[in-house]
Nucleic acid binder design. Structure first.
Lengths: 195, 195
DNA sequence: CAAGAAATCTATTATTCTATAGAATAAGCA
DNA sequence: TGCTTATTCTATAGAATAATAGATTTCTTG
């Protein structure tokens, strides 16, 4: 009970940090901004975090973690390359609705982490890119994707197109599924061979 | 001659501001950082700019201006919709190589401008989006683009995919043309009708 | 209820930052 | 050379910042 309460409160603090970082950027946000959102004093935050930067690292970690989990099982499952790409796009965009602030901060503020504080986040992000690369490699090997495709460029295109929605998508106004579907259409048509 | 010298120096100051804003972000960059890069004192900058924010506005303006100019003549010219889209993509990505810092700052830091300082930049960006929307509208009307296309989503996809390169493209290592070509392939295949 | 632990607050420190005012230097020109 | 203007520097005001230490309140649990 003691522990559970702490965890709940810790989550609230993290939510506030994510929201403020997302709105103002890491350097534009002050620890007082975060405290104000919670109705507590600036210094009280340091009961939960040793530094502002560690708070950023935690937010980024949650932001990236949502991506990786689903993609692993998509790769393990069966179905055509096109279906897997569609599933991967939906998997990538879903957290933009459910964990909007966390994803935004990961995408736009993670570069403010130092090598020390950002190591785990970077590692997880690399893992995700490797999974995506494997999806594309298998698609090319299966003859489903254009053979002349630059795999690295293609992976960056998938990520770039999906991520771009974070700049304008508002989870308060409508779902992300239709957007994911439309983007999957574009990517599948754009990447697969045309018979 | 007196005027020309001022303009040249002003450009150097702006280059330094663009570089520092691009590297550290608007709030992460201090006026001292900019001055250090120029080998002058922090206070001396205020001979050229009334405020840090106005400097940002100038950088952003140059960043967005490069986009608009070319697209107008592309729309005016003739050729298929596919060719125009390819030209538009190349037009969009070219400044990412030639004015890398300016474009990066426009894309990633313009939200730090207030309504007052950012009005012209916003206006120019809106103008650009309208031109792109017209290109797509004409493509749909001509039957070249998929009729079921959500025009707004399609425009955001074009912009999002192109802009994403700013996160990883390094003008010091290779040109942008091949990337633009590959992205144009994806977008054209993804947006046009498949017979 | 009472003791101990958890959570928050008050108060402060040492920096850092933007912007300004006025002095000093450099450059252009009669 | 000496006058004038352009540019940069020195010095500082005033506000904001992250983080710490210790006091105080609130909660949990026996």
């Amino acid at each position: 009970m003691r522990e559970a309460k702490y965890k709940r409160r810790y989550g609230e603090i993290l939510d506030a940090a994510a929201a403020v970082f997302a709105e103002k950027g890491y350097h534009g946000a002050s620890t007082k901004d975060i405290a104000d959102r919670l109705g507590i004093r600036q210094g009280s935050l340091y009961y939960y975090f040793p530094s502002k930067e560690v708070a950023l690292a935690e937010v980024c970690w949650i932001g990236v973690d949502g991506f990786v989990k689903g993609l692993q099982s998509i790769l393990g499952g069966d179905g055509s390359t096109a279906k897997k790409i569609r599933a991967a796009v939906q998997n990538h965009m879903a957290p933009m609705a459910t964990r909007h602030h966390y994803v935004k901060v990961f995408l736009k503020e993670r570069h403010n982490l130092t090598a020390r504080t950002g190591a785990e986040v970077t590692h997880r992000a690399d893992e995700y890119e490797r999974l995506l690369d494997r999806l594309l490699a298998e698609g090319i090997a299966a003859g489903a994707l254009r053979a002349n495709l630059d795999r690295r460029l293609a992976a960056l295109a998938v990520l770039g197109l999906c991520n771009s929605a974070i700049d304008w998508f508002d989870p308060a106004r409508g779902g992300i599924d239709r957007i994911a579907d439309e983007y999957a259409d574009i990517l599948i048509e754009g990447l697969t061979v045309t018979p």
